[in-house]
Amino acid sequence: MKHQSREGLVRIAGVRRDMQEHALTREERLERWAELLDQTPDRRLNTLFETEFQPLSVRDSMRREGSPLGVAFDDVLLRKEGLKNDTYGEAKRFFGLSDLEMHQLVCSCHTGETVRSGSVAECVRAVAEPGPSPWSMFLNAFFIFRRP
C-alpha cells in the first residue's frame, strides 16, 4: 500500500473544500468555548468590571488579560471561525449573545475580581440552550444596558 499525504488523498478522492468544513453554529461555538473552559475548571479567570454601567462604546472595547474571553480567543478553531479578538463587543458578536448574557458570563458583579473557569463553562452551556426566557428578554430590552 502506497503512503499518501492528506492533500494527496483529498485530490484523489475529489473532495471539495466546502465539503470538508462547515461553519460552526452558535450552539457549537458556545459548546467549544465551554469545553475550553472545562479543560482547567479550577483556574481563576479575571472578570470585567461592572459591564452594565459602562457606555456602549466603552463596554464593547472592554477586555482583560486572563479573562473567559481570552480563553476563547486563544483557541485556534474559534479564531479560524472568525473570532477577531478578546473584547466584550467581539465576543458578543461572534457568539451571538445579548448584553444580559454577556453580563452573566463575564461581569464582576456576580463573583468579584475572579471566577472559576468551570463556573463560567456552566453558564456558557446554560446560555447556549435554545430560546431566551421571557424574563431575560424583558430585562434586556427595557431596563439593562439602555445607557448611551
Rank of each mutant, 00 (worst) to 15 (best):
T25E: 09
R16Y: 00
G131I: 03
D18Y: 08
Q39P: 08
K80L: 05
A91F: 08
A13T: 07
A121F: 07
E28L: 02
E52K: 05
K80Y: 06
N46Y: 09
S117T: 10
T51I: 13
K2P: 13
G82F: 02
G14F: 00
T111Y: 14
S117M: 06
V15P: 03
R16I: 02
R29W: 06
T51G: 06
I12Q: 15
S108A: 10
Q39R: 15
P134L: 10
F53Q: 04
S133T: 15
N46P: 00
D18R: 12
E31D: 12
L24G: 10
R6P: 01
E101T: 04
K92M: 14
K92A: 11
E35N: 15
E129P: 00
A13W: 01
Q4V: 11
E122T: 14
S117K: 06
M137P: 00
E21P: 00
T114V: 08
V120N: 07
V15E: 11
E7V: 07
R116C: 10
Y88L: 06
S133C: 01
S67W: 10
S57F: 09
D38A: 15
P148D: 08
L36R: 14
R116S: 09
L100W: 11
Q20A: 14
E28W: 02
L37R: 11
R147Y: 01
R43G: 07
E35G: 12
F143C: 07
G82H: 03
R17L: 11
E90S: 14
E50C: 05
E65C: 01
P41Y: 13
T111G: 03
P148T: 04
D60A: 07
W135K: 11
E113V: 05
K92V: 05
V127N: 04
E113N: 00
S133H: 07
R44L: 15
G112Q: 04
T114Y: 11
E90Q: 14
D75P: 03
N46I: 02
L69V: 05
P55E: 04
I12G: 11
P132A: 13
H3C: 01
V127G: 05
R11N: 14
R146M: 01
G70I: 01
K92S: 09
M1I: 00
Q39H: 14
W33E: 02
D74A: 15
S5R: 11
A141Y: 01
R93Y: 03
F95H: 04
D75N: 10
E129M: 02
L37G: 13
P132Y: 08
A72G: 09
D99K: 08
E7F: 00
Q104N: 08
M62K: 05
S61G: 02
R64F: 00
L56V: 13
